[in-house]
Design a protein around this nucleic acid. Structure first.
Lengths: 201, 201, 201, 201
DNA sequence: CATGAATGAGTATTCATTCAT
DNA sequence: CATGAATGAATACTCATTCAT
């Protein structure tokens, strides 16, 4: 693709990278709809159009594969949601921004989102994966507490508010994945308005 | 063997019932924290204190076991939530009632709740299990539509509202399961109030 | 077999034991003529007339199997050679006794002997197996040194004398295994006489 | 690529020969301490500092590689031991000569010696390799029989005597490989003296 | 009825070999 | 010629299921 500027250099740099991506993409799809244990390595290989052995040139094991996938997707999520993070003055604005960024991400990468949700607390996640998860959590918690201090959010346990909002968000995404029809922008806005009313002071 | 002497005592039939329950209970626990494919039949047997072969006297297969478990728990959930269903006059009251019944169920049987949530759309659920699921869904949908007609709920797609509420509820339950500390009654009430404000007109 | 004294007790005690033995015996044969890595687990299973999975009821892994086999055979060798170990007064007598016991063992269990020889220094032997090996070595070394002190053996490095004798013994056994025809008692005696002359003072 | 400019330099043909040697040398080392099945082709390639595919430019298969290696080493052994073979008048002298040539070979190429020993009767040796082995054996056998006719050696089955001597020799070599400390010239002489006394009439 | 030893189909993983560069 | 990424057949090992006791 955008390699116009390097067109005279054969795509040597890409060797392997393509396969690696194909494998991760196939794994994402399969893990989402069959679960980790429900997915076999040969299935991943077939879906990725590579030999079964090839997977092991890129990943130490099936477990290493989920973990790398988890971190990549979590990172992508974090990047999409938090990039250019200049916390707006008010909580209303902040919430709207976050929600719409999350919505955009979930719309563009619904599988990624569901995957992250499903594997949230799987026992095969390693330390690095779990830490990444917890760092994001801490970031949000801080923001909630600050907003509560300004009397913009209800005075409830931060984790409760976050659980409500994230749960509702996940509920919506799952619902549209299940029905395999994406939400309209209007629906996303409606949902956002609902959840803002759920948590505002 | 010695059952000739006890053939007139019908209560013996229940002895098997005990094992059946032990198996289902063990399976519930294990499925919740290892997943369906992550759980082995011998593990279930050991936790249930029965021989591995015994499981097959009560269930045709591992898959039949999840399905029966799913239906049993879904039924239990339905019974707990809907029993004595005399739809109160107003949506506010109805919502409060439903939420608190669900909260009570989720508090008393957290594993059941998480199990139902996790296996919601698993590919090993058979037709009967899926229908049961959809019947409950239809019931709720009808109620939502009726309330919207009375201008008591926001005018949003019913599935969206239900997804938000159920999602938020699940979010809260999962959160307290993860932290393995039950929510207080006050927290449940707070959450209910939040979500009511999310959906009310 | 010889269970006449316990004939009224069904051979419950033996359940599994038979299979375990069958597996070890099959493994011994195969390891001897194909090596450890050259032998597949299904091959062992087939030769032992058990399912492949059965092997894992008795042994944790293929590696655990070689190690148990090694220890069992080493033990058997030690028992056969050293039992009733009342070191005769003279080295001549001692040597004759040891040689003939080893010959008897090697004649009755040629595969065992070759197996021990082949796996002597394999990298898959665990600590316990190696220690067993070294304890026997130390025993012999001590005896040699004592005999040298009495001027009955040549004054050469004990390890050299032992290597010569054990090497020669192994050479003879291997040779007869290869030609698959057992040595006569006379040949064994001849060989013994040769090696005695090799080491005597 | 740039071989047009060097086409007139024949010595270039040897460059491949270097790789061939590197491969065989690496294979020798690895086969000796991990066995044939315990050694992987990529390992050999890495140790030889060539690409894995390169091995297949020089050898048809891994099996072809062991066989060529076997024949090469056997040949080298034969050459070293038998070259300038002018059978001395007496068996004593002959034995001393053979032993010291073998000792010299084993000292200079301990890996080669152990390799030949280990792979002696491996099932992956092909016909040509086995014949080479048997030709050497026949040569020795003839010499032994002749010496027995002259009453210089004990009157025992020739194969027995050869097995004793070769076994003892191997025992000594293995022992010093295991302890990874070479034998002194004196030790070699001692050993030779011992084994001569073992077989002389 | 209950058991758990036995099974073999199925899974993750390795490795000899090929082939595009 | 040389390479090493890619492959898939083969291997160690697991586990749902059966069945003799």
């Amino acid at each position: 693709m955008a390699n116009a500027t390097t067109s005279n250099r054969p795509s040597l740099r890409h060797i392997g990278g393509d396969k690696r991506e194909a494998i991760m993409s196939a794994a994402l799809d399969l893990f989402v709809d069959r679960g980790f244990f429900g997915t076999t390595v040969p299935e991943i290989a077939e879906k990725a159009n590579v030999g079964a052995g090839t997977i092991y040139r890129y990943f130490d094991s099936k477990e290493a594969l989920v973990n790398e996938l988890y971190r990549q997707e979590k990172q992508r999520f974090a990047t999409n949601v938090i990039e250019n993070w200049t916390p707006p003055s008010g909580a209303r604005e902040l919430f709207r921004t976050l929600w719409s960024k999350m919505a955009k991400f979930a719309t563009q990468h619904p599988k990624s989102f569901v995957f992250l949700e499903l594997h949230h607390h799987a026992r095969y996640l390693d330390k690095a994966s779990i830490e990444l998860e917890q760092r994001m959590l801490a970031l949000f918690t801080g923001t909630v507490i600050a907003a509560q201090a300004r009397r913009e959010l209800k005075d409830a346990p931060p984790r409760l508010l976050m659980a409500l909002v994230m749960g509702a968000f996940v509920g919506v995404v799952r619902n549209c994945v299940e029905m395999s029809e994406p939400l309209t922008a209007a629906d996303w806005q409606t949902a956002e308005q609902c959840m803002w009313e759920a948590i505002r002071a």
